[in-house]
Design a protein around this nucleic acid. Structure first.
Length: 311
DNA sequence: AAGACGAAAGTGGTTGA
DNA sequence: TCAACAACTTTCGTCTT
C-alpha cells in the first residue's frame, strides 16, 4: 500500500467578509488572512503541525517522537516527570486501594521536588507571568520563547535582585517583541501587565545595558500593517501606505520622528487616496498618538511628496 | 454637528557638559 | 546633576464640510 504525505488539514472556513474560501495561514503574524479581501479571519494562530515531514511510513516512524518538546517557558523546560491525577494503571484499570495511597504520596512529593528552592520558585513565577502577558497580547509562540530565554539569561547574570519580577518580565516581553519584529508599544505591554509604562521602560533600558543587547529601532512599516488591520482597511490601503512610507524614507522625512506617528499619518493619507477614508481621530486612537501629531506628520509629508489628493 | 486645522503652552525623555 | 533640546501632548478657538 502506498503511503501518502500527511495532508494539510483541509480548510473549510470561509471569510466572513467576502465569503471567499481562499484563506492563507500566516504564521509570522499568527493570523489567518483572506486572500481576496485581506480580512483577518482569525488572530492568535498556533502552528499545530510537526516541524518535520515524512515521505513514507518508515520515515514517519523514525521522526515521530513522544512527549512534549522542550520549552524555555516552563522553569524545568518541561522535561520533568508529571504524575497525572487518574488513579489508573496503563490498562486503564483502577488501582487497588493500597496503591492509590502510594501514588497520592508520590504525587505530593513530586510536586514539592519539582519547584524546590527559592530561585526555582521565582523562575516558575516569572515564566508564568511572561506567559500571561504574552497571552493577553496574542503574541506568537516564538516571542514567548524568546522572552523566556532572555529572562533566564537575566537570572543567570543576577540582574533580578532588587527589581520587581513583574517589571523585568514585562521588559523581557518588550525586548522579545522588538527582537522578533512584532510591533508592540510600551503602552501595549504595560496595559497587559500590572506594571506601568515608566517601570517597563526602566527595566527595558536596564536589561539592554546589562545584557549588552543592540535592538534596531522599530520601522514604521511594522506599525502600518498593524494599524491597517485594526482599522479593517483593505489590503490595497496597506500597500499604498507602504509605498508612501518608502518615498518618505527616501526623502529622509522619517528620521527622528516617532514611528507610530509616521505610520499613522501614512495610513491616513493612504485611506484618503483610496477613498476608504478614516478620520484622524479613529487612527489616532488606534495608533496611540494625538490627532495633532498625525496632522503635523501629514503636513510634512504632503508638502514634500506633492500629493494630488482626490476628495 | 462632526471633523479638520493650527497656535500656544506644557510634558517627559535624551543628551552632553 | 542639571540645563538645553526636540518630539510629542493637551487644550482650545476657528474654519470647513
Amino acid at each position: 500500500m502506498k503511503e501518502e504525505n500527511i495532508p494539510p488539514s483541509p480548510t473549510t472556513r470561509r471569510c466572513p467578509e467576502c465569503g471567499s474560501s481562499r484563506l492563507m495561514k500566516d504564521y509570522e503574524s499568527a493570523e489567518i488572512v483572506c486572500m481576496d479581501c485581506g480580512y483577518v479571519v482569525a488572530a492568535q494562530l498556533t502552528d499545530q503541525g510537526p516541524e518535520w515531514r515524512a515521505f513514507d511510513a518508515e520515515q514517519r516512524e523514525k521522526r515521530a517522537r513522544a512527549g512534549a518538546p522542550a520549552t524555555f517557558t516552563i522553569h524545568d523546560k518541561g522535561l520533568s516527570t508529571t504524575i497525572d491525577w487518574h488513579d489508573r494503571d496503563i490498562h486503564g484499570k483502577s488501582l487497588p486501594h493500597g496503591q492509590k495511597a502510594q501514588i497520592y504520596r508520590l504525587r505530593k512529593w513530586q510536586k514539592r521536588i519539582r519547584v524546590s528552592d527559592a530561585t526555582e520558585r521565582n523562575l516558575a513565577f516569572a515564566l508564568s507571568e511572561i506567559s500571561k502577558i504574552a497571552h493577553n497580547l496574542n503574541l506568537p509562540k516564538n516571542v514567548l520563547e524568546t522572552a523566556s530565554v532572555i529572562y533566564r539569561k537575566a537570572v543567570k547574570e543576577r540582574l533580578i535582585r532588587g527589581r520587581s519580577i513583574q517589571g523585568v518580565t514585562a521588559a523581557t516581553i518588550y525586548v522579545a517583541c522588538r527582537q522578533c519584529g512584532v510591533a508592540r508599544t510600551l503602552e501595549d505591554i504595560s496595559q497587559a501587565s500590572p506594571v506601568n509604562k515608566k517601570e517597563v521602560a526602566r527595566c527595558y533600558r536596564f536589561l539592554l545595558k546589562q545584557l549588552d543587547y543592540f535592538i534596531k529601532p522599530v520601522k514604521p512599516g511594522q506599525y502600518i500593517t498593524k494599524f491597517c488591520n485594526q482599522l479593517t482597511m483593505q489590503g490595497k490601503v496597506e500597500e499604498i501606505a507602504h509605498q508612501i512610507l518608502f518615498a518618505a524614507t527616501e526623502l529622509k522625512l522619517t528620521s527622528g520622528r516617532g514611528p507610530t506617528g509616521i505610520a499613522a499619518a501614512v495610513s491616513y493619507i493612504a485611506s484618503i487616496l483610496t477613498g476608504e477614508r478614516k478620520t484622524q481621530r479613529e487612527i489616532a486612537e488606534i495608533a496611540q498618538v494625538t490627532e495633532v501629531t498625525i496632522r503635523n506628520r501629514y503636513k510634512e509629508l504632503v508638502e514634500r511628496l506633492q500629493f494630488i489628493i482626490y476628495l
